[in-house]
Amino acid sequence: MSVDQAVTPMMQKLNARVLGSGSQTLVMAHGFGCDQRIWQKLLPQLQSLPLKLVLFDYAGCGGSQVDEDAIADYPDLQAYADDLLALLAELQLSSVLLLAHSISSAIGMLAAIRQPQRFKKVLAITPSARYQNAPDYYGGFDTADIEQLLQLMAQNQFGWAGILAPKVLDEPENSVVSQQLTQSFLSNNPAFSRHFARLVFYVDIRAALPQVPIPVTIFYTKADMIVPQQAIDYLVAKLPQARAVLLNVRGHYPQLCQPQLLAEQIKRELGYGVV
C-alpha cells in the first residue's frame, strides 16, 4: 500500500490495496472463485510501469470483511458493481483503467453505465455477456449444465474445485496452475461462492451492452470452455466501442498460464509498448 494511503471503510471491507503511483490508475478486478491473489504472476510486470494499481476482493472472496449473513445484500451483479463504485469514490478515483477478468467484465460494464466518469476503459479478459444458451444465443452452457455445477458445489464443498479447475484451465489435474486455482476456489466463503456462482452463470447483460459508454478491449483465448468464440463475437458486435485481441493461450486464465504474454498485451494497450 502507498505510504500516504489511509484505509477507508470500503478498503477494509474489500481488503483493498493501493500499490505504486502514476498518472494512470489500473484497477484489477478478479473473477468468480478467486481473489486478488490471482494477479500475483502479473503484478511484477505491471509494477514496473508508472501506474497506480488498485487490488481488492469482492464480498465473500479472499480477505473481504463480509460474511455469509450479508448474502442478501447481493441479489444481483449490480450490488457488486456498486461496491466497486463505492471503493473508487472513497479513493477519489476517476477515469481509471479497469483490468477485469471474466465476470468482472460484466460488473465493470454495469458500473461504467451507472457512473461513466469513474472509468476510462475496460480491459476485459475472457468476458461474456451471458453464459447460458438461449434460442438466439450461444453462451456455452445449457441450463442442465449450470444446475449440475451448482448441485456439485452444494453437495461436495471441496471436490467441485478440483474437478472444475483443470477443465477451465485446459490443464492436467496435477499441474501446478490447476492446484493453484483449486486452492483459490477453496479459499472463498462456500455459501458466498455458491451464491455468486448462481448469479454468474445466470447473468444476462446483453440488453445493457449498447449503453456501455467507454471503450472495451477484449482479450480472449483458445480452448476456453467458459467463453466460446460466439460469445466474444457477440460482445464485439453489440458494444459501441469494442475490439478483440486473441491471445496465444489455452483456457480461461491467461494471467495464470501465460502472465508474460498477457502483460505484453496490457502494456501495448496502455501505451507503454513492450519493455
Score class of each variant (00 low, 15 high):
L99E: 00
L152I: 06
L150Q: 11
I107H: 01
G108V: 06
Q115Y: 06
Q117W: 09
E147I: 08
Q117P: 04
I146Y: 06
A144C: 05
F141L: 12
L98P: 02
F119K: 08
L93M: 10
Q132L: 15
Q148C: 03
L164F: 14
A106R: 05
V168S: 01
F141Y: 15
L93P: 00
K167A: 13
F141G: 04
G139A: 09
I125V: 15
K121I: 07
I107W: 03
A134W: 07
P127W: 03
Q117R: 13
M109Q: 14
V168L: 06
Y137W: 05
Q117D: 14
A111I: 02
M153H: 09
A129N: 09
I125L: 12
A106H: 05
R114D: 14
L98N: 02
Q151Y: 04
L110K: 09
V96W: 06
Q148N: 12
Q155T: 13
M109R: 13
Q157G: 01
R118I: 03
S102H: 11
G159C: 00
A100S: 12
T143Q: 14
V168F: 04
Q115F: 05
A161D: 09
I113L: 08
L123Q: 03
A154K: 14
A134K: 14
A144S: 12
P166E: 01
P172L: 06
I125F: 05
Q148T: 15
V168K: 02
S105F: 05
A106W: 04
T143C: 09
G139Y: 08
